[in-house]
């Protein structure tokens, strides 16, 4: 039995593989990782050299993994929205989107196909960068399970970022507008989730339940993830925040693993919402799609 790949994914990957962008992308991506790796090694070596011989180089090498992983996450966070932002608006610009809409592909499958092709493209990069990551990981003495969790989390994160890109692409006529909108949404999610706790802090109030907004912040999710991997502690442990300060619900989540599961669920929920919004927006049977076209006409006339 053959697996039926989403036709959009197949086409996008086929086209991407033929363009030089993919090769250059992998090249640059690996270059950044290698440079980070070398830089980190240089710093570690100079540290070890300068400190008394009791210091074991391996205790420093442990930090290679989170450093490289965070760089990798950063690149994914930047690139995936850019790739996916141009997905649907790119089809509109190329005037291929109408034909796609007249086929039997449902709007949701179109949207999902676009996210998936963006994510798979970034996974090429991730896999290409694996050896470098693996060195840091083996030398640093991580467990295999952690590497696996990391890859799962990274993939989910890429899907999340992709769904933002596709949603903004669906509501934009031009790709450049879509990219800008994606980063605005990014900012809203990363920035505004800090806002409640920040305001409370400024006014000298207890944190209350304001940390709950962090559940929706993938940045905090990864922070917690690495915190747990590296130290076995949670950001929200009694050690790190005074439990009397936080509200009842936040207190319940002071178990880091539980926190990560719930935060993961929140991020997946947001992803689903973004995908549904995108599918709704490209469906010509909803009035939104019609309004878009009208603006386009006026623009070109």
């Amino acid at each position: 039995m053959k697996i039926r790949l989403n036709p959009i994914v197949r086409k996008d990957l086929q086209v991407a593989a033929r363009s030089m962008k993919l090769s250059w992308g992998v090249f640059l991506y690996d270059l950044v990782l290698v440079l980070t790796f070398l830089l980190a090694m240089a710093i570690i070596q100079s540290e070890v050299g300068s400190v008394y011989s009791r210091d074991n180089i391996y205790s420093y090498l442990v930090y290679l993994f989170p450093v490289l992983a965070i760089v990798q996450i950063g690149i994914v966070a930047l690139i995936v929205p850019i790739i996916t932002s141009s997905s649907i608006s790119g089809e509109k610009e190329r005037q291929t989107f109408d034909i796609m809409l007249t086929t039997c592909l449902s709007p949701l499958r179109i949207v999902w196909g676009k996210v998936l092709s963006g994510v798979l493209r970034i996974l090429f990069y991730v896999v290409a960068g694996m050896p470098i990551l693996a060195i840091s990981f083996v030398v640093g003495g991580m467990s295999w399970a952690n590497l696996f969790y990391y890859l799962v989390a990274l993939t989910l994160f890429a899907i999340f970022s992709g769904s933002i890109g596709v949603m903004c692409s669906a509501m934009s006529r031009r790709s450049i507008t879509a990219v800008i909108r994606s980063f605005v949404v990014y900012f809203v999610i990363y920035g505004l989730t800090f806002l409640p706790s920040l305001i409370r802090m400024i006014y000298g109030m207890d944190a209350g339940e304001s940390f709950l907004f962090y559940l929706f912040n993938p940045g905090v999710f990864f922070e917690e993830f690495f915190m747990q991997i590296m130290t076995g502690q949670s950001l929200f442990d009694g050690n790190n925040i005074s439990s009397s300060d936080v509200g009842f619900f936040t207190g319940l989540l002071s178990n880091g693993t539980l926190w990560m599961f719930i935060s993961g669920a929140c991020i997946i929920l947001m992803t689903v919402v973004f995908l549904l919004v995108a599918a709704w927006m490209i469906n010509p049977m909803h009035s939104y799609a019609g309004r878009k076209r009208r603006k386009k006409k006026k623009g070109t006339e």
Partner: peptide
């Protein structure tokens, strides 16, 4: 049931 050829349409590069 419908095959549609639009007035303006584009094609993909590299396909």
């Amino acid at each position: 049931m419908i095959g549609y050829v639009p007035d303006f349409f584009g094609v993909y590069d590299n396909l």
